[in-house]
Simulated scan of single mutants.
Amino acid sequence: MSLDQAARTVRRGTQESVLTAKEYALLEALMRRPGTVLTRAMLVEHCWDLGTSPGSNVVDAHIKAIPGKIDRPYGTQAVETVRGAGYRLRRDGGCTMATP
């Protein structure tokens, strides 16, 4: 999977995925620290304004949409839920980021 920050695109294999602005921001945060569990509070801080509560389900709602867009048809899940802690991007996903 590759994320091109200049073009704001995400590719996995040869397939480009269309993500919303929030989905893209969440995936970008996860790709910056693959294998590291990011809490909801960390993701809210990166992707939303100060008025958003990390206790709300706003992160969960947006995260749930990502696998359907980037995992199909690969059969492996790139974003993992770490129960009671947060989310992480699998280290074995071969993820790269191109910076502007």
Rank of each mutant, 00 (worst) to 15 (best):
E28S: 13
T96F: 02
I63Y: 01
G86R: 07
Y24N: 02
H46R: 13
Q5G: 00
M31D: 01
P73Y: 03
V79Y: 06
T20M: 10
I66T: 07
T14W: 07
G86P: 15
V37H: 03
H46Q: 11
A78H: 10
D60M: 13
S2C: 07
E45Q: 06
A25Y: 00
E28Y: 15
A21F: 10
S56V: 01
K22F: 06
Q77N: 13
E16D: 14
Y87W: 09
T39W: 03
D60A: 14
L27R: 03
D4A: 04
A21H: 14
R33T: 15
P54E: 00
P100A: 08
R33E: 08
C47A: 13
G55L: 02
E28L: 15
R40H: 10
G13T: 05
P34W: 01
L3V: 06
M31I: 10
L43D: 03
R72F: 04
A6L: 09
K69F: 13
G94H: 06
S17R: 08
T9D: 00
T20H: 11
K64Y: 11
T99M: 05
D60K: 13
A41G: 06
Y87C: 10
A6N: 11
A65N: 13
V18Q: 13
T76Y: 11
S53W: 00
G55P: 00
Y87M: 10
N57Y: 10
T81Y: 09
V59A: 02
G94S: 08
G93C: 11
R83T: 15
G68W: 04
R33S: 12
W48G: 01
G94Y: 04
V44M: 03
M31E: 01
E16T: 14
L30S: 01
A65E: 11
K22M: 08
H62D: 05
K69W: 12
E28P: 05
S2V: 04
E80A: 15
G94R: 03
R12I: 00
T14I: 03
H62C: 07
P54K: 02
V18D: 07
L19Q: 03
V58E: 04
C95N: 11
R90Y: 06
E23D: 06
M42L: 09
N57G: 15
N57P: 03
A7P: 00
R32K: 13
Q5A: 04
M42Y: 01
D71N: 13
D92N: 12
V82M: 10
R88S: 08
A29W: 05
T14D: 06
D4E: 04
V44E: 01
T52W: 00
V37E: 03
Y74W: 14
E16Q: 14
A21V: 11
L43F: 05
G13Q: 09
T20P: 01
E28W: 14
A41C: 03
L3E: 04
P34H: 02
A61S: 12
Y74P: 11
T81F: 13
W48E: 06
I70V: 15
E23C: 09
G86A: 12
P73M: 03
M31G: 12
E45H: 06
A29S: 11
